[in-house]
Design a protein around this nucleic acid. Structure first.
Lengths: 205, 205, 205, 205
DNA sequence: CATGAATGAGTATTCATTCAT
DNA sequence: TATGAATGAATACTCATTCAT
């Protein structure tokens, strides 16, 4: 029965995706040690045992989440952005706009940012790829920064430091999105200003 | 002959302080769930049982840490700063300088910032005072921001948002101090720039 | 496919009952402080963790045992006995007979008597119902005693004292059943004699 | 300094006695497993360490208590009683009177009875002497019972069973003395009646 | 000798993982 | 395949015992 086989495969894939997606938020909010399988399963709406059909262990589930995060189109998007024939300032504004829009609309995106940044900070052993991944994002950002510094629109300073700072602020507001009940989200301009010189000042030159 | 009462009291106070101080870093780095009493005790250099002489439970130890954090002189210092007959710009530069200097020299300070900010984000039930505490710091910062906006040295925007952003960046670099192995610490000017308009631009006006 | 809901419920009820029943003897023999969860679990034939699925703590298990003891049919039986159109003497003989028969055949019954009496003596806080329960048994016994004193078959003395004494002797031999290796069990007549006047003496009147 | 040597010895003896006496009640009320050294020391009014100067371990303290209990003059008194030129009935009444009087006045006596009987029931390994001791008391009691049965004042039945029963009732009211808040103490006559035939019946013969 | 702070072996409790249904 | 009851290794917590003062 090839049809049923396929269908089975399909169902498996669906369940796997569901677990993965629901877990991202849970892990981002509670951390690895703070996440109990029993509660996670309840949150997802499946039995505890079901989790172990799809993932060998809690740790494997956690590292699979990174595979998911890192396979995202983030890098591709960034690469597309950099190649556009725009000023660095426009690129930064576009990027910031895209980030803030997603952050405000999509908890999963915020969770991904949070987990990814935390991994980078804590250097957990079982996450391998992300160093490469993350540094790729950083490198692209640095390129834009360098372009901007040439163009005079981006503040002075080591590009690596500025890129780190920029994504740090993104992480900060991803955290607020996930955890804080009362907070003031910053605007796309606020985020851009991490890199861009003040408009008014420039205009006056 | 019994140990002198005062000496006993002294020893108890010392040990309690030692536990509290050493625990701050540990909890900040590993989180509540990720902290094992057995390892914490080893880290402090005491027996597991000793911990329980001074604190009823892991949770109590954790919440006592907040009493310690919040009883700090942070507020007092800020209050002194705000009363000085200085421009908002000078105040912000002074404050940022003090914060970044401490952050770079003192892991415990970084840990305090981290724990305090996380508590505020996560709104753990057993921490009561900090809301007040935190908002007090925020309120003072807002006052400086308002002063600076009048003086034209501080960027436009809701003071509450800017204060939140400013302390968020402090939190961000406290995290980096504690966790990151490779990172570029921002300078005092970088931190100040969260609030202050770019120098060059201003000069040109 | 999930286990059928009813079957699950059934299994849970069975395991719970098993734990409760097996624990009665263990607690009665070793006391609360003297009972180790690890050994109790081994005795029952389950894992330690299983105990905690059904009972929040050792203390909760202990107090649930009382709910079980007190929900017994003891009172009902006594109430039925008292309503029979018999002389107090016959009632006492019947009651004593039933008690001693059970005591000799059923360790669980002995354990229930032991735990219940000890609770009454020690007035543990977490046992609420039993005061009522116990005093109800006492009150019924007192009624039979009063009837017997009117009929001239029961010895003089405060009914409350005699009831207390009677059940005290029952407790005494429940203890012997559980603990003593060598002892002489008293007969039904011996127990009845706590309340009843000596036959021979009466006959001679 | 021989004088100081003696004085030291004296003080040691006093402290040892104090610990022993205060411990009897505590152990009787809480059992071996239920007694915490920290609380026992507080109850006695000494430091925890002090206990270990006088006794090697909790277990040794417990078994020393038995040496104390068993070295008591109980047996001697009983032996004196049996040798008096009295009827068994008089002896039983005298004995019961002495027992009940002490029981009501002296918690330590009640505690001794309780501990002693429980040891006999539970046959703890580290108590050796008491079997002999206890059986000696029982044997003397049996002699009185046999005498009484010959004289017609004591009820029929195996002397060993009756002796066991008699001392069981004594244990029962020792328990009540220690634990119960509300209870009706039995009188000397009530205790005697365990062995003695009813007066009225006898008189009528 | 007396103390009580410190210790770690022992006990209670939790939770990732397994497995019969 | 899906479930959740059962498990025991890991973790939190207690308490008899030691030891510096």
């Amino acid at each position: 029965m090839p049809k049923s086989q396929e269908r089975c495969q399909e169902i498996r894939e669906e369940t796997r995706s569901k677990i993965l997606n629901e877990s991202i938020l849970y892990f981002a909010k509670n951390g690895f040690a703070g996440t109990k399988i029993s509660e996670l399963a309840k949150h997802i709406g499946i039995g505890q045992g079901t989790l172990y059909i799809y993932f060998k262990s809690k740790e494997e589930l956690f590292s699979e989440i990174f595979a998911l995060i890192n396979s995202s189109k983030e890098i591709e998007e960034l690469n597309n952005l950099i190649r556009l024939p725009l000023s660095a300032k426009r690129k930064i504004r576009k990027l910031s706009n895209r980030i803030m829009t997603r952050l405000m609309q999509d908890d999963i995106y915020a969770a991904k940012v949070v987990l990814n940044t935390q991994m980078m900070l804590e250097q957990k052993d079982f996450v391998f790829a992300e160093t490469t991944y993350q540094s790729e994002i950083y490198q692209i950002t640095e390129k834009i920064i360098k372009q901007g510094q040439k163009e005079g629109s981006v503040v002075e300073g080591l590009p690596v430091k500025l890129a780190d700072y920029y994504w740090g602020v993104v992480y900060l507001y991803a955290l607020k999105k996930l955890f804080a009940t009362k907070y003031k989200m910053i605007s796309e301009e606020d985020l851009s200003r991490v890199l861009l010189k003040d408009e008014r000042g420039n205009r006056l030159i």
